[in-house]
Design a protein around this nucleic acid. Structure first.
Length: 521
RNA sequence: GCUCCUGUGGUGUAGUCCGGCUAAGCAUACCGCCCUCUCAAGGCGGUGAUCCCGGGUUCAAAUCCCGGCGGGAGCACCA
C-alpha cells in the first residue's frame, strides 16, 4: 500500500500531458475508450436469448383498456420484438363476477388500435382442467389444504400469524373437502389455501387463497365451473405452461414474486423470470374502475370515451395517435420509480406526428363581425398546409367576416391588420360590429395576422376542450369546456376523425359535423 | 404499525450492476434568435441538477458500505 501511494503521488507530480504521453508509450491499451454507447429503447433483458423470448400481456376482461394497459402491452411487445420472440395475449378471466364479453372485445380493439400484435391469444379459463389438476396435486402433496374458516377469522389469523385448525387437517379430510367444494359447499364456506408460512414477514406467504367458490355465470364458460383459481395460482401455472420466459407486471405485485416462484417450485414446474415496472397514470386522470365507474354512471362524463378519460378510446377520440403513445411509453423507460407522468411529453410527441398531416383551417371563437367596406375579391385560394403539398381550397368572399372575439378586443380604430392569406385592412369603426377598409395586398410583417371566416359560409362548431378531471382529488366541475366557434365550410368535407390544426388556436380532431375536440396546442 | 420497493434539473429518463473517460447525456417544459402570411412544425442557442441528507471506504463516488429522511405499494375467498 505505501508503495502504491508513493507511485501515485509521483505520477501526480507529472503534468497532465506528461502523464498522457507516458501512458501512450507504455500502456496504449488503457487509452482505448470503451464503447459504452447510448442505449436506445428498453434496457436489455436478463437471460434473454434471441428467438426464445416469450412475453405475455394478461389483462382481466373487466373494463375498458386504458393508458396503463397500453404501457404493459407495449413493453411486452417491444421485448418480444427485440429478441425476435413471441407475445401472448392471455385474458385473465378467473373471476366470473367481473368478466364481461364486451371487455374481451374492447381490449382486442384497443390493442389493435395501438398496433400491438400478438402471436397467440388464449384465456386462462381455457385451462381450468389443468389448473384443477395442479390444485389437486398441491393438496395431495400437502402443499395446500381446504380451509372452512370464515373470512374474518382467516384475515385475523393472517395478521396475527396464527394457523387455524384446518391447516392441521389430514390428507383425507382435504381431499374430501376439495371434492365437496364442487358440490356441497356454498360460496364463502371453503377455500383452498396454499400451505405457506404463517410466520412469514411477507404477508402474501401466510397461506394465501388458491381456489374459491363463485356461483356466477362466466361469459365464456357459463356455469360449467364454480371453483375458480385465484390470481397467484392461475398466473403461475399459466405463465409456466405457456412457455413465458419473461413476465412483466406492475410494482404492486412485487411481494407476490416469492409466492409465484414457490408455487412453481412445489409443482416442479418451469419458472419464468418475473420483472416489475411502475404504473402509468396521469395526474388528475385516474385509471381505476372504482373511480371511473361512478363518473360514468352519474353522467359526470359522457361515457368511457369521454375525452377527459385515460381510456384508449378517449385518447383516440381526443386525437392522440398510437405512435405517440408508443414513443411516450418507451420514453418512460423500464423503471420501478414512482412517477407522475408528464402529459406534456405525450402531447409533444403527438404534435410532431400529426403536424405533418393536419390540414390548416381557420376557426374563430367568440365570433365578432367585421365588414370590409371596399372588398373587391369574391374568391380566394388557401393552402391546406404551410410546408407540405396538401392542396388548396377555395373560399368565397363578400367582405363580411367573423374574427375571434379575442382578436377583436385588441383592435382600435386606425389599426392595420392582416387577414391571413388575404389582404390588409384598416379599422375604421368599432361597435357591435367592426368596420374596416381594404388597404392593400402587400404582406406586411408588422401587421398582426388574424384568421377570418366569411359570414355567409361559416360553419357553426362546438369545440370541446378537455381539462384535468380531478383537481386535488376532487372532481373538477369545469373539466370540460365548450367553445362556440365558426369555421370554414371546408370542415364539412373532412372525414370524421380528421386531425385539423386551427390556425393560431391548436390541434383538434373532428368528432362530428358540428363538434371538434381539442387535442392540444 | 409491519414488510417490500423507490429517491438524478420544473417534469420524464440515461448513466448506478463492473468507482475515474461526464461536476452528469437525452427528451419535455421554459427563454431567446432564425425560418414562416399561425401562438404549429423545423433550425440554432440558452437558463436549469453540489446526482434526497449525513457519515465511511478510496488517490478518485451519482456510482461501493453504513445510518437517516422523503415518496409509493402490499398486508382480499380482486386481478
Amino acid at each position: 500500500m505505501p508503495l502504491i501511494s508513493e507511485i501515485v503521488s509521483d505520477i501526480n507530480k507529472l503534468s497532465l500531458s506528461e502523464q498522457k504521453s507516458e501512458l501512450e508509450s507504455s500502456f496504449p491499451e488503457l487509452l482505448v475508450v470503451k464503447p459504452k454507447q447510448e442505449r436506445v429503447g428498453l434496457p436489455p433483458l436478463d437471460g434473454a436469448e434471441n428467438g426464445k423470448v416469450i412475453t405475455r400481456f394478461p389483462p382481466e376482461p373487466n373494463g375498458y383498456p386504458h393508458i396503463g394497459h397500453a404501457k404493459a402491452a407495449i413493453i411486452d411487445e417491444e421485448y418480444a420484438k427485440m429478441y425476435g420472440g413471441k407475445l401472448i395475449l392471455r385474458f385473465d378471466d378467473t373471476n366470473p363476477e367481473n368478466e364481461r364479453l364486451e371487455y374481451y372485445a374492447a381490449i382486442k380493439v384497443g390493442l389493435d388500435w395501438l398496433g400491438v400484435k400478438y402471436d397467440q391469444i388464449k384465456n386462462t379459463s381455457d385451462d381450468m382442467e389443468l389448473i384443477y389438476k395442479k390444485g389437486l396435486e398441491m393438496i395431495e402433496s400437502g402443499n395446500a389444504y381446504v380451509c372452512t374458516c370464515d373470512k374474518e377469522t382467516i384475515s385475523k389469523n393472517r395478521r396475527e400469524m396464527k394457523a387455524c385448525k384446518c391447516r392441521a387437517g389430514d390428507h383425507d379430510q382435504n381431499i374430501k373437502r376439495w371434492h365437496d367444494m364442487f358440490e356441497k359447499y356454498k360460496p364463502g364456506e371453503a377455500i383452498v389455501r396454499f400451505r405457506g408460512d404463517m410466520q412469514s414477514e411477507n404477508t402474501v406467504m401466510r397461506d394465501p387463497a388458491m381456489f374459491r367458490i363463485i356461483d356466477e355465470i362466466h361469459p365464456l364458460l357459463i356455469d360449467k365451473y364454480r371453483v375458480w383459481p385465484n390470481y397467484d395460482f392461475a398466473v403461475a401455472i399459466e405463465d409456466s405452461i405457456d412457455g413465458v420466459t419473461h413476465a412483466f407486471r406492475t410494482k404492486e405485485y412485487e411481494l407476490r414474486n416469492e409466492l409465484y416462484y414457490t408455487i412453481l417450485d412445489k409443482l416442479g414446474m418451469r419458472k419464468p423470470k418475473m420483472f416489475e415496472f411502475s404504473r402509468l397514470e396521469f395526474e388528475g386522470m385516474p385509471v381505476s374502475k372504482r373511480i371511473l365507474k361512478p363518473l360514468v354512471q352519474d353522467g359526470k362524463v359522457s361515457g368511457y370515451d369521454d375525452p377527459r378519460l385515460p381510456t384508449l378510446e378517449a385518447l383516440r377520440r381526443r386525437g392522440i395517435v398510437p405512435e405517440a403513445i408508443r414513443k411516450f411509453v418507451l420514453s418512460l423507460g423500464f423503471t420501478k420509480s414512482d412517477t407522475l407522468a408528464p402529459f406534456d411529453t405525450l402531447e409533444s410527441f403527438n404534435r410532431k406526428i400529426i403536424d405533418v398531416t393536419s390540414i390548416r383551417l381557420f376557426m374563430v371563437t367568440g365570433p365578432v363581425k367585421i365588414i370590409v367596406k371596399n372588398n373587391k375579391l369574391t374568391e380566394v385560394e388557401l393552402p391546406n398546409h404551410p410546408q407540405r403539398d396538401m392542396g388548396k381550397r377555395r373560399v368565397e368572399l363578400d367582405g363580411n367576416f367573423y374574427i375571434s372575439g379575442e382578436d377583436a378586443k385588441t383592435l382600435k380604430v386606425r389599426d392595420q391588420i392582416r387577414l391571413i392569406e388575404l389582404y390588409n385592412v384598416k379599422i375604421t369603426k368599432i361597435g357591435s360590429e367592426i368596420e374596416a377598409e381594404y388597404t392593400g395586398n402587400d404582406f406586411k410583417a408588422e401587421f398582426p395576422k388574424i384568421q377570418w371566416i366569411p359570414q355567409k359560409s361559416a360553419v357553426k362548431l362546438n369545440i370541446l376542450i378537455p381539462k384535468t378531471l380531478f383537481v386535488n382529488e376532487k372532481f373538477n366541475e369545469y373539466s370540460l369546456e365548450t367553445k362556440q366557434a365558426y369555421t370554414e365550410s371546408h370542415y364539412l368535407e373532412l372525414n370524421e376523425g380528421a386531425e385539423i390544426q386551427f390556425v393560431r388556436f391548436g390541434y383538434c380532431r373532428k368528432d362530428s359535423a358540428m363538434q371538434a375536440i381539442y387535442t392540444h396546442k
